[in-house]
Nucleic acid binder design. Structure first.
Length: 263
DNA sequence: AGCCCTGTTGCCGA
DNA sequence: ATCGGCAACAGGGC
């Protein structure tokens, strides 16, 4: 699930846990901890979260001792805030305030939980580029100048632009009618400007709909994607032009696109 | 029941 | 620089 729009929704969810005393820290799965258990406890136990921020697919929770809890969700992670109904696959669970629980979930135990006191340094260590919603047109165009590979690989490269993954890359290219294998250098200036606008537009639209597939606009490819992966014949028609949706591999990732209107 | 395939993440080595 | 393989697990198809 977690690309930029999903993580942005997690961030909003996580805000519910702000300014409440962290009463207990329950570490249920050590595998995705990038820091020691004792360091994590030291910074969380008895403290409070005072703010949230996001960069690309990373969520940061500011702690009142000046440190940041850094969360990355891998393929199947999410944030849960609940009173009684305990979700499955909890990795880190904290009791915050009066009887509420704030938890990091990870089904496949991929992802990352870390502590840092320097956001800039952290982002640099991870080799992350500008956030997809923060980058401006000039910076975006400059990045495209140096890119040799396919447009799909470019959009997904976190060291160039942070936040866009497989699903939303396909969506952006689908909306623009650009083939995922098209080379960045073969796109005209005007097309690159459109790409920039559409990138922002698709991400914002997804956030507006709480990153829930079923709620996305009618002409979005994302609504069909889950069905497409399981070869359901019903789902293989393009919602824009009726063309056939195809699946190929681009840059080592599965790409879905309309063979009729994406050239 | 149980095998096979697919998958939203990123890292690593050839 | 690009590519496959891997990590770990769920869920659908057959």
């Amino acid at each position: 699930m977690p690309e930029l729009p999903d993580v942005e929704i997690f961030r909003k969810r996580a805000r519910k846990a702000l300014n409440k005393k962290i009463k207990t820290v329950n570490i249920k799965q050590k595998k995705i901890l990038k820091t020691s258990e004792s360091t994590l406890r030291k910074h969380l136990n008895g403290n409070k979260f005072t703010g949230t921020s996001r960069h690309g697919k990373y969520l940061f929770m500011k702690i009142n001792d000046g440190y940041l809890l850094a969360l990355h969700f891998g393929m199947t992670g999410e944030i849960s805030y609940y009173k009684k109904e305990k979700p499955k696959h909890i990795v880190l669970e904290m009791e915050v305030g009066d009887k509420y629980n704030f938890a990091v979930i990870s089904i496949r135990k991929l992802g990352e939980i870390d502590i840092t006191d320097n956001l800039k340094k952290f982002l640099k260590n991870k080799n992350l580029g500008k956030d997809a919603l923060s980058i401006n047109k000039k910076q975006f165009l400059k990045l495209t100048e140096k890119s040799k590979g396919s447009i799909k690989t470019f959009l997904m490269d976190q060291s160039k632009i942070a936040g866009i993954g497989n699903i939303y890359t396909d969506e952006i290219l689908f909306q623009l009618g650009i083939h995922p294998k098209k080379k960045v250098e073969d796109l005209e200036e005007k097309e690159l400007e459109k790409l920039f606008e559409k990138m922002k537009n698709v991400l914002k639209e997804a956030i507006k709909h709480s990153a829930i597939r079923e709620k996305m606009p009618r002409n979005y490819l994302i609504k069909k994607r889950a069905d497409l992966a399981h070869n359901k014949e019903k789902a293989d028609k393009c919602p824009k032009c009726g063309g056939k949706i195809k699946n190929i591999t681009v840059g080592g990732r599965s790409a879905y696109f309309c063979s009729k209107h994406q050239k």
